[in-house]
Design a protein around this nucleic acid. Structure first.
Lengths: 109, 109
DNA sequence: GCGCTAATTCGTACGTTTGCGACATACAAA
DNA sequence: TTTGTATGTCGCAAACGTACGAATTAGCGC
């Protein structure tokens, strides 16, 4: 985080942080893959994306550290899945923003 | 845009692009300010944020180039306001994603 | 134990973003 | 026309993000 970022309200920083996680197509692709339930296995996820395994793993860790996904070891594989509770919270945050931005008041400009 | 980004579906790239715009607290702050209607004037926006005028202007241009806000000259001032139509579209895109992520299906991990 | 496979971390290269001072533009009023 | 004020652009430096090969960790079967 840039030094200046700390000077904004925590609420904004938090929302910006989640938006940043969604700001790369690979991470959105991972989320959609997990949502579609076709697979939860790390290697299978990597095979679906046009990126190296190392890079996919990096994206997975970012999502996991933020709590958007959960991962658990299953023998030689690692299964990932969405953290539905977290997504409920995120949905609420974005909806609060959209509620502000879509209004009928006419702007004076 | 990184070269690899182009290898993902256009739909994902588009959503990621919008998310990137929301990934900085200054830009969210600008959006909330405009939504609150207290002011639309460029200089007033800059005064509300802990950033230099040059930096705020840069963020404003990014939002404007993406169509999230509109700006028009009014004498010596420039008035900015939200592009409500665009925000409706954005809301739809995010809601489509959230609809996928919040489900009752139990994951096998 | 040994080899095999899956997943992750490390180190590094490269591009992008952020932030700002200084400069440029543009309008308004004196 | 000169002066002052509001905006926006340029060029640079520092911080951050993305991507990958190589090295590492960790479990399984023999």
């Amino acid at each position: 985080m840039h030094a200046k970022t700390a000077e904004f309200p925590a609420e904004l920083q938090e929302l910006a942080q989640v938006a940043k996680l969604l700001s790369h197509p690979a991470r959105i692709a991972i989320i959609k893959l997990l949502a579609s339930q076709k697979t939860c296995i790390s290697g299978d996820i990597a095979n679906e994306l046009p990126l190296s395994r190392a890079t996919v793993c990096q994206h997975l860790q970012e999502l996991k550290n933020a709590g958007l996904i959960k991962g658990e070891i299953s023998g030689l594989n690692v299964n990932y899945c969405l953290n539905t509770e977290k997504w409920r919270a995120i949905k609420g945050q974005f909806e609060a923003l959209f509620a502000l931005t879509i209004h009928d008041i006419n702007c004076n400009c």
